[in-house]
Amino acid sequence: EMEYEEITLERGNSGLGFSIAGGTDNPHIGDDPSIFITKIIPGGAAAQDGRLRVNDSILFVNEVDVREVTHSAAVEALKEAGSIVRLYVMRRKP
C-alpha cells in the first residue's frame, strides 16, 4: 500500500540536499522508471525539513510530471524549479 505526501522545500545555498536515481533511460529498480531519492545530504534543505526519505519516489516537481521521464529531464525539472520547490512523493506505507 502506498502513501502520498506533498513536501515543500526552500532551496538552500547547497541546493535541495538530496540525490536521485532512476528515469526511463536508467531504471533504478527492475524496469520501474520512477525517480527515487537515493541519498539525503546531512545539513541540506531536505534533511532540515525531515519529511523526505530515501526510497521515496518523486511524482511531480512543482507542476512538472516526472513519472515517465529520463534521468536528465528529472534533474532539469529540479534545477528549473526555482527557490521554493514542491515535491509530490509516493512511498510504501511502513
Rank of each mutant, 00 (worst) to 15 (best):
E1I: 03
E1C: 02
M2K: 09
M2P: 00
M2C: 02
M2W: 01
E3W: 02
Y4P: 03
Y4I: 01
Y4Q: 06
E5V: 15
E5I: 14
E5P: 10
E5K: 14
E5R: 12
E5Q: 12
E6D: 15
E6Q: 04
E6S: 09
E6H: 10
E6I: 03
I7Q: 00
I7D: 00
I7W: 01
I7C: 08
T8W: 03
T8G: 04
L9K: 00
L9Q: 02
L9V: 10
E10K: 04
E10G: 03
R11S: 06
R11T: 08
G12H: 08
G12I: 10
G12T: 06
N13L: 06
N13D: 04
S14N: 02
S14F: 04
S14H: 08
S14V: 15
S14I: 13
L16V: 13
L16W: 10
L16T: 06
L16G: 12
G17I: 01
G17K: 15
G17C: 03
F18D: 00
F18M: 14
S19Y: 15
I20D: 00
I20E: 01
I20K: 00
I20R: 00
A21M: 07
G22V: 03
G22W: 06
G22C: 03
G23C: 02
G23M: 02
G23P: 08
G23I: 06
G23L: 08
G23Y: 04
G23N: 05
T24F: 05
T24R: 14
T24Y: 14
T24N: 15
D25M: 12
D25Y: 04
N26Q: 12
N26T: 13
N26F: 07
P27R: 12
P27T: 09
P27S: 09
H28Y: 04
I29V: 11
G30S: 12
G30Y: 14
G30R: 12
G30K: 11
G30C: 11
G30H: 13
D31Y: 07
D32P: 10
D32N: 11
P33I: 10
P33H: 11
P33E: 12
P33W: 08
S34W: 15
S34P: 06
I35N: 04
I35F: 11
I35Y: 02
I37K: 00
I37N: 01
I37W: 00
T38E: 10
T38I: 05
T38A: 05
K39D: 09
K39G: 11
I40V: 15
I40N: 15
I40Y: 01
I41C: 11
P42Y: 12
G43T: 10
G44Q: 02
G44S: 13
G44T: 03
A45C: 14
A45E: 04
A45R: 04
A46C: 10
A46G: 11
A46V: 11
A46E: 01
A46K: 01
A47S: 12
Q48F: 11
Q48V: 09
Q48M: 04
D49L: 05
G50K: 14
G50L: 11
R51Y: 15
R51A: 08
L52K: 00
L52R: 00
L52E: 00
L52C: 12
L52P: 05
R53D: 12
R53P: 00
R53G: 03
R53Q: 02
V54M: 14
N55Q: 10
N55C: 13
N55D: 09
N55M: 13
S57E: 14
S57K: 12
I58H: 00
I58L: 08
L59W: 10
L59V: 11
L59G: 13
L59R: 15
L59K: 15
F60L: 14
F60S: 14
F60V: 12
V61G: 00
V61Y: 01
N62V: 00
N62F: 01
E63K: 14
E63P: 02
V64M: 05
D65C: 12
D65K: 15
D65N: 14
V66D: 00
V66C: 08
V66R: 01
V66E: 01
V66N: 03
R67A: 15
R67T: 15
R67S: 12
R67E: 13
E68S: 09
E68M: 13
V69S: 15
V69W: 13
V69Q: 10
T70R: 08
T70Y: 14
T70Q: 10
H71V: 03
H71C: 02
H71K: 15
S72F: 03
A73R: 10
A73I: 10
A73M: 10
A73D: 07
A74D: 00
V75P: 00
V75G: 07
V75L: 14
V75A: 04
V75R: 09
E76Q: 05
E76Y: 04
E76P: 01
A77P: 02
L78R: 00
L78V: 12
L78D: 00
K79Q: 02
E80L: 15
A81D: 14
A81V: 09
A81R: 12
A81N: 12
G82T: 15
S83T: 07
S83R: 08
S83Y: 03
I84K: 06
I84M: 12
V85I: 03
V85E: 00
V85S: 09
V85R: 01
R86F: 11
R86D: 06
R86I: 15
R86V: 07
R86K: 13
R86E: 02
L87M: 05
Y88P: 01
Y88C: 15
Y88I: 01
Y88T: 03
V89M: 04
V89L: 14
V89F: 12
V89E: 00
V89C: 03
V89T: 03
M90H: 15
R91Q: 12
R91D: 02
R92M: 11
R92I: 09
K93M: 11
K93G: 11
K93W: 02
P94W: 03
P94C: 02
P94M: 02
